[in-house]
Amino acid sequence: MISTIAFVIICAACIIQIVYLIRKGGEKPDPLSHYLLLPAAILLFTDITIRSIKINFVAITNTFESLVFFSGVISLVLSVYRLKSREKSPPSVLFGGTVIIIIFLAIASSPLASREIEPPIPALQSYWLVLHVAFSFIGEAFFVVGFVAAIYYLTNKNEDKRRSIDRLMYTSIAIGYPIFTAGALIFGAIWAEVAWGRYWGWDPKETWALITWLVYTAYLHTRFVAKFRGKFSAILAIVGFLATVFTFFGVNYLLSGLHSYA
């Protein structure tokens, strides 16, 4: 119920963004939608908190809870970014991010993700899991911004705008990358060692998380070392996000492995 209210608020924010995009031609961000995304994020985290109290463990142990948490983090990141960058934030990036939240929450409310509140099975009863999942999603929330910025970059012809959007794309990936590395790879490896006696098992989810990490590593290295900018970087940012999405959904629904509950 709480997530549904958050979903309605996010939809309202999206409608406001669309109206402003049409009326102002994407020049100025709307003054309201980020103030809606903030309480929506709080509501989504409240839903997670209530579920956590019911199962006496941090409720990020199934697809529904993961999507709600992920959507909450993206809402928070978008909102904080808009507040910090004030009038300079491109409305299209906020709009794109908001659409992605709506898609994730729609999937969460679909039959693909069970809403049942279930306590964790023994393999999931570890606080390394909490760190692993939380840090991975926080990192990936920044990748969402990088992805939307990359799309905006490729569809925009204005050079000044492209320069600032390239900077936004880089900043969001540069912030998300170490957080994702810590969460998905470091904490994940430590948890695997504690639970199964090995750091790495080439499970499909692990392999795809590594592929995602390698794509973003390529993004940063081509930028730092080869000084690549613009179109090539934008394409890598898009490929990286597609790999992120496949790691989350594709592996869950198409491949089986140790992470089949996630």
Binding site: P178, T181, A182, I186, A189, I190, E193, G197, R198, Y199
Partner: peptide, 27 residues
């Protein structure tokens, strides 16, 4: 029950600490 003897455990643990430290210092 599974028994594991991994001579690389300490080395990997040091590596994980170094990677975490490197990320933190960069940040």
């Amino acid at each position: 029950l599974q028994a594991v003897v991994d001579p690389g455990y300490t080395t990997v643990l040091i590596a994980v600490i170094l990677i975490g430290l490197g990320l933190s210092v960069t940040y």
